[in-house]
């Protein structure tokens, strides 16, 4: 949590400290502004994933509402006008969750936590509206497709046969019948950016990746859906071509 808020603070400071230069306009030799259309950028940040699952009567298996992860990616944008651009790219994003199996067995209280770390690659396609001249404010929205790259579990469980707790820390093998590794959804958010040196722009944004695809395939009729919603805060640097 400390890391999360520290990153947020850092990104605010980056935003505040940006130089008051035009985003994609620079003086040309004849002193009329020259519009640059293409931008390439790198982003990094943190995210919190909300894993939506209804455990119905299995009330002892409690999912934490949020779990932190990291985000890293690049973006390619094309801006036909000063205030509108279309962006895509690829983002490596963790969509993690945590479950604690808490129960009372005779007079003892047990807590068996499992942290699941999921690595996804998301490819957004979004429209970005920008306002401002020196410092720009952006609002963007679109869709994304994704792929579930890997899953890792760590935690504690109770081995009844050995009558003791068992610690595990292992990669989770995907099950072709159960796991839906393809992901689709909506993404939206807002950000701030500004030019610092020449064609280099820095910025920060907050965004949501709202998945509309169940992480499970429809392999049974009575299947309770499970969805991820990731909220990311990221900062980045871009270069206007």
């Amino acid at each position: 949590m400390k890391l999360f808020y520290s990153a947020l603070l850092l990104m605010c400071m980056v935003g505040i400290g940006m130089q008051p230069l035009a985003a994609q306009e620079e003086p040309a030799a004849d002193s009329s502004p020259r519009v640059r259309h293409w931008v390439f950028g790198l982003n990094a940040g943190l995210d919190r994933n909300y894993h939506s699952v209804d455990m119905v009567y299995m009330t002892d298996m409690r999912f934490d509402k949020y779990r932190e992860g990291s985000v890293f990616g690049f973006r390619i944008g094309y801006a036909p006008t000063k205030w509108l651009s279309i962006n895509t790219g690829a983002v490596l994003i963790q969509k993690n969750y945590h479950m604690d199996h808490v129960f009372q067995y005779y007079n003892l209280r047990y807590s068996l936590p499992t942290t699941t770390t999921n690595q996804y690659v998301n490819v957004p396609l979004e429209l970005r509206l920008s306002v401002g001249n020196t410092v720009k404010i952006h609002a963007f929205g679109g869709v994304f497709g994704g792929y579930w790259l890997s899953s890792h579990r760590s935690g504690t469980t109770y081995s009844f046969s050995n009558d003791r707790n068992y610690e595990f820390d292992e990669d989770w093998e995907f099950n072709d019948k159960r796991d839906n590794r393809l992901e689709t959804g909506f993404t939206w958010g807002a950000g701030i950016s500004g030019m610092i040196i020449g064609r280099i722009e820095v910025g920060a944004d907050i965004r949501w990746y709202y998945s509309t695809s169940d992480i499970q395939k429809p392999y049974m009729v009575n299947l309770n859906p499970r969805y991820n919603t990731a909220f990311a805060i990221q900062a980045g640097v871009s270069y206007w071509l």
């Binding site: 699952v53 455990m55 299995m58 469980t157 595990f168």
Partner: peptide, 11 residues
């Protein structure tokens, strides 16, 4: 089992 899905298993 660790869920209502038929294939929701513990490790």
């Amino acid at each position: 089992k660790q869920g209502t899905g038929r294939l929701d298993y513990s490790g």
